[in-house]
Design a protein around this nucleic acid. Structure first.
Lengths: 126, 126
DNA sequence: TTACCTGCAAAGTCTTTGCACTCTT
DNA sequence: AAGAGTGCAAAGACTTTGCAGGTAA
């Protein structure tokens, strides 16, 4: 499915995620956009972030401990979450394509993929 | 830290998680308890689940897509989440103790551990 | 006795949704 | 013109918290 229409709001959301170059939450994206486009609605930001994720133009990182993050890098990669500041960082590690194949699977699950989330302390918080 | 006091509520919460032998959410635990102990408060269930987690008597599985789950098995292990029914299942796979050691770590993170969450379809939903 | 725990209700965080209006196509 | 997208406010899902009263040690 493609974006059906090109609205100003959609392109601003995409551009903002790309420009931020970090793992921003929907609200952080919203706050940045609001400064240059004060009438945008939070709901519109959420809707567009989700649609851009579906279309693979950005990547959603789902974080159990808090708000989901949005990443301008679309390829699969792993993350670490700092337990002190809560920020998400990229991990420099090859994506393990075949991880699913190493699993004993007597029940017969159909695997689609996996995420690895490391926990730790970032250099700033250490 | 240990449980400081043994209250009826605490022991019921622990017993219920053990007896359920599944990856129940806090609300599912609450619903079961409510049948036999109708006056218990949801807040008490949440508080006790969190305290039991801290004390390593149960294990909290943090799920980005929904409510956290509580597991009676305390050792580290991985899970799969069915994208259709949302249920969590155990994965029969060795915990990779040394995963953190394989990471290029020029920024100098301090690693504490990791979680792997597989995605897929369970036998029932397939 | 006293500090911890409980029940209750309210609030908090993050996200989605219903609705009427607007704008792309 | 049609219907997809928007802004707004409300609601929804999940969880935590403040407070007054209750209870284990």
């Amino acid at each position: 499915m493609q974006l059906k229409r090109n609205t100003l709001q959609k392109s601003i959301v995409l551009k903002t995620v790309h420009d931020m170059k970090c793992h921003a939450s929907a609200d952080e994206v919203y706050d940045v956009i609001k400064k240059i486009y004060p009438n945008i609605s939070r709901a519109t930001v959420y809707r567009n972030l989700n649609e851009l994720t579906k279309n693979n133009e950005i990547k959603k990182i789902e974080v159990p401990e808090g708000a989901d993050r949005f990443d301008h890098r679309c390829f699969d990669h792993y993350h670490i979450r700092c337990i002190k500041c809560g920020k998400i960082f990229d991990i420099e590690m090859e994506y393990i394509k075949d991880l699913e194949k190493t699993i004993r699977n007597p029940q017969g699950f159909e695997f689609i993929g996996h995420d690895i989330m490391f926990k730790g302390t970032c250099p700033t918080c250490k």
